[in-house]
Write a protein that binds this DNA or RNA. Structure first.
Lengths: 211, 211
DNA sequence: GTCACTGTTGCAGTCACTGCATTCAAACCT
DNA sequence: AGGTTTGAATGCAGTGACTGCAACAGTGAC
């Protein structure tokens, strides 16, 4: 029909990357509401059906395939550590490096796009809830370690699961904070946003007030 | 045309309530995915256009018009109090009584429906973010009070806004916990779910571990 | 060459949601 | 009472996200 010979055989990874790039570019230029899936498809040179073969939703394409996950090695160390709980726990959540887009500038543009769109920001935050379960189990183990170390009684041990849940939710809130400040710094042009180290001292001060 | 004489003049409130009731009933019976807006409209005896005149989205009809809000009187007391910060702050968020549905059993059915649907649960949680801004300002005022009382220095005062944001996010996580346990208790049939009083002692124990 | 595999596609259809113009009952006015 | 205004409800046509299905075309294996 045209000069393009049927299906482009460029492999899953390339097509996926092309979609992500097109999506970010368009949203950066026109804003979230003004961009349709059809526009993204056209820019990426694929059909709409192909788009939805690669991404479950329009939002997913904008957020990318790199999801936050728990660093298993760090989790093992965290469980037996006796350092500041929240600050250490905040360091558990990472993004798997091999899932990151090949083009590094894409990350920056994505952070920019996401931080300027309430809808995307909300979706981004929702992703964190996906790992909350895993997180809760790790925190339960850590609390158990702490309790045993302190020689806790029966009643206190029984309350640990519930406490783990509270801590997990507190932590989820904290991760949202980290995400937001990261996005904000990125949007403002400040190059390397905060890590969790910077957070530790501040958290300590905050927690002292909570009692 | 039919026996029904044109548009039912039953007032906004009644129609809204009818939609809410129909929505909850259907989702309770068939599950979220199996219920379409058309079905809700038919059950409520209205047109689809009317549905969207009353609710912005399908989700909104299921969650109801009663949104969480900050109790202004409680907020004023909170700012000058020197009690446990997080536990007290968790008590600030209420649902305006006059916004609650007339039929009390509707609330129970709604909590049940929402707690069994991840999508709705997520939307419910999103609503909390709407008041986070207001919350942050109140917490900033409270932190300022605390700081002045303790005779804080210049540097510490400058850090207060950032601290207020951290506390707000921690608190947001905590409110999600309260909401979840409430929903869980309701789903399990346990009649009166926890209040924030019950939370206070537990929180104290948790926070002691966070340092 | 044939065959299985896989990435891609078109198409038809569903569902959520919107803008616009219209209708009808009730309240208001004279 | 008769005319006007108002506000809830509606029909309709259209957009945009998303799905299921069947088909098609390069790619590599035998």
């Amino acid at each position: 029909m045209s000069t393009e010979p049927g299906p482009r055989r460029r492999g899953v990874a390339e097509t996926t990357a092309a979609i992500e790039r097109a999506a970010i570019d368009l949203v950066t230029e026109h804003g979230y509401d003004q961009v349709t899936v059809d526009m993204i498809c056209q820019a990426a040179g694929i059909s709409q059906r192909t788009f939805f073969n690669h991404f479950k939703t329009k939002d997913a394409a904008l957020l990318g395939t790199d999801e936050p996950a728990i660093d298993q090695q760090a989790a093992r160390e965290f469980i037996v550590s006796d350092g500041p709980l929240l600050a250490e726990a905040a360091g558990l959540v990472r993004i798997e490096p091999d899932r990151l887009p090949a083009d590094p500038s894409l990350i920056m543009r994505r952070i920019n796009a996401v931080s300027q769109n309430p809808v995307l920001l909300a979706r981004q935050m929702e992703r964190l809830t996906a790992i909350e379960d895993e997180l809760r189990q790790i925190i339960a183990l850590r609390l158990r370690q702490d309790a045993l170390r302190d020689g806790a009684d029966e009643a206190e041990l029984a309350d640990l699961p519930e406490q783990a849940e509270i801590v997990t939710h507190l932590l989820a809130g904290l991760m949202r904070y980290v995400g937001m400040s990261w996005a904000r710094a990125a949007a403002a042009g400040t190059p390397p946003p905060i890590g969790t180290e910077h957070l530790a001292e501040r958290l300590e001060r905050v927690i002292r007030k909570l009692g």
